[in-house]
Simulated assay, not measured.
Amino acid sequence: MPPEQSTLPAPAMAAGSVPADWRAPLVALVVVSFALMLATVSSWGEMFHQWWAIDTYNHLLLVPFIMGWLVWLKAGELTRIAPKPFWPGLVLVVAALCLWLAGRASGINLLAHAGAVVALQAAVLSVLGLRAALLLALPLAMGAFLVPFGDEIIPPLQFVTAEIAVTLVRWSGVPAQIEGLHIDTPAGLFIVAEACSGVKFLVAMATLGVLVAFTRFASWRRRALFMAACVIVPILANGVRAFATIYVAQSIGAEAATGFDHIIYGWVFFAIVLALVLAGAWRWFEREPEQHGWDAASLAKWDWLSRAETHALAPASAVLATCSLAAIAALAAML
């Protein structure tokens, strides 16, 4: 995901002013996207269910809107180029659909979901071309966050949270013993359950971190530091939250403290930590969001890009080939 520096913000495209040479390619993109989503509909249904019904992934409902906003910011730059279908993109479509089929066959939803998402990303490359895909590098990369992930790191996060909490409890003067995920204190026995692992907080912060890092920073060093903060801070903060629950329970009882903790963590705590992270980074912001990524003038200087665009494909062929691949994948999934 290599968005680079731009000196001036691109002018926004006025509503209803889609250039003539973009109209057919955009219609083609809608057609192939529908075909690919129809072919992989089972995975898209599973992903939407997770976004909607599982609170760990509720924030992913915002990702399509974030992607749309990022594309809108690049609309002016897109009008400065002409879309050129790129046949090597079809190779990525094939690879993505194979990944989807492998995930369905093996029962590994993460692979199937990733394949369904990458197929759409590859379709943009195939239908709109390499130059357009480079201009849209950040919104396309944000598409990776449509894939629900994070369950795999719940167990280690539980142990980290337990260790931070028991260390702080002991420092506060409250006697405590720990055995695995169980913390025994005078007020009762506390268990760092999956819901207390902080994975929801961490995944949401990582998503926000990528968005902010590549829209507000130009320096890779600052991006790396900000991303590190978006990983380390929520982990530490979750340990502090668990400690606070145990400490307060010594006075008001374990049941009351736990109930209060869930309300505060769900509605207030995340917002406070998020605000603190953004406030801490604010003074080092280097650019405005519309300056993210490359601009058309920068891409025009890349000789290799012009050479790569000789691998062109007729627009109708791009649509026919992609839709055919989607149909083949759908049939293969039914066998």
Rank of each mutant, 00 (worst) to 15 (best):
P139I: 12
V192I: 13
W304C: 10
G107Q: 06
H262F: 14
C196G: 07
V93P: 03
G259C: 07
P64G: 04
L111G: 10
L60M: 14
G253T: 10
W282L: 08
W304V: 12
P9C: 07
A114I: 10
V160A: 08
A224D: 03
K74M: 00
A114T: 12
G188F: 08
V174S: 01
Q50M: 13
F243R: 05
P9M: 06
R222A: 00
L111E: 08
Y247K: 13
A123V: 00
A318K: 10
M334K: 15
F285M: 01
A318I: 08
V240I: 06
L211S: 09
A329D: 09
R307D: 14
S197Q: 11
G259K: 04
V32G: 02
I178V: 11
T56G: 13
R222T: 00
A15G: 13
A53N: 08
T161Q: 06
R131D: 09
F214G: 02
L61D: 01
A204Q: 07
G209V: 02
L92W: 13
V166W: 02
L62N: 02
L299Y: 04
G239M: 02
L305Y: 09
A297M: 14
G280Y: 05
A312I: 15
A12L: 14
L136E: 04
T207P: 10
D295W: 10
L73W: 08
A314I: 14
L97G: 09
S172Q: 02
V63A: 10
A132E: 06
A249F: 07
L202S: 05
I81R: 00
R241T: 05
A297G: 15
P19W: 04
